[in-house]
Design a protein around this nucleic acid. Sequence first.
DNA 1: ACCTGAACACCGTTCAAGT
DNA 2: ACCTGAACACCGTTCAAGT
Lengths: 194, 194
Amino acid sequence: MNGKPYIAQRPKRADGRRNYDAILAAARKAFESAGADASLEEIASQAGVAIGTLYRHFPTRAALVEAATRDGLENLVAHAERLAAGPDPLEALLAWMREAVVHFSTFRGLVGILAQSMYDEGTPSHTMCSAMHRSGADLLRAAQAADRVRPDLTPDELFDLLSGAAWVREQATPDRDGSARFLELVLEGITTRG
Amino acid sequence: MNGKPYIAQRPKRADGRRNYDAILAAARKAFESAGADASLEEIASQAGVAIGTLYRHFPTRAALVEAATRDGLENLVAHAERLAAGPDPLEALLAWMREAVVHFSTFRGLVGILAQSMYDEGTPSHTMCSAMHRSGADLLRAAQAADRVRPDLTPDELFDLLSGAAWVREQATPDRDGSARFLELVLEGITTRG
DNA sequence: ACCTGAACACCGTTCAAGT
DNA sequence: ACCTGAACACCGTTCAAGT
């Protein structure tokens, strides 16, 4: 429909770059403690800038969230490539799944944003999400080719399972995090048994 | 910590009851279209009452959500009892799980509220949630006693799986709802195979 | 090119005045 | 016992004025 979604860019001028970095650092801290709907005014004030400066660099909340989580998604993609080179395609997939669940639940509300991004091209994180989606799909295909995962499982279904696990983790309290067990149970359902 | 959570009560006076019902109807509609964080002012205005009247009946958003979903949870408990009387304990559990997932995802944000209520006694829906939790646990225990479900699955784990499925459904668009398949895959992981 | 902060809009929440 | 709506607070968002 509309044009390309706005992707935040690190400014070239020194003062702009300093503020950009300070806002991102404050945003990550705020998201982790208050979730994806943390107060933008609070973030600006923690970063020591006026609210207009935050909006100049990140015109929408989605752009700020995307910038704050870009590194993590890139790491996930890079790690998938390293894992794909390993000997055991099932172990590679499982290790990546565990890592993905942890990243998806970095802060409350993130997994919902990622799930929407996956299927909405109008979203800042859509491109990164698609790349990550492809990484996971590649690992899945390899594990299926080796007859270690049921052949009828699609990449979309894999991501529903991962997102569900991440959501459980996002809801968890330190004393009660069911996401590891959740993933374990899911794996029982998708791995092939001899 | 603090006293009992406030549970909304249907008033005795006719005008109060009329408003109470109108607010609930408007709230259900608003929650379904805008999620659990729908505008309260909009709900009051749709119900034809002043904002103060909404607050008089439902002093917190949680109280309004609880009142709007109380019937559904009661039905779920009642249905569990009927199912428990049936001949096949696995079928009973599965039927109830499917129904629970649908109810948990009545509107965006509900499953998160329910998940919190399950473990936070300070919440209006805690009592209802606990009753529902017991219903599910009973069906689970019966299916395990019949050797149809893995014996090491706990009720808390069952609810994590149900909540994850409901969350996937909550995110879904009409053309893409992966929750049925999600549940199917989960069932592969928890049923015992001969 | 970047920053500031006042200004406006919207919504949640409370409460004094009413019937 | 219940209703009304003004009042206050808080936050998102824009924009004119500045460097």
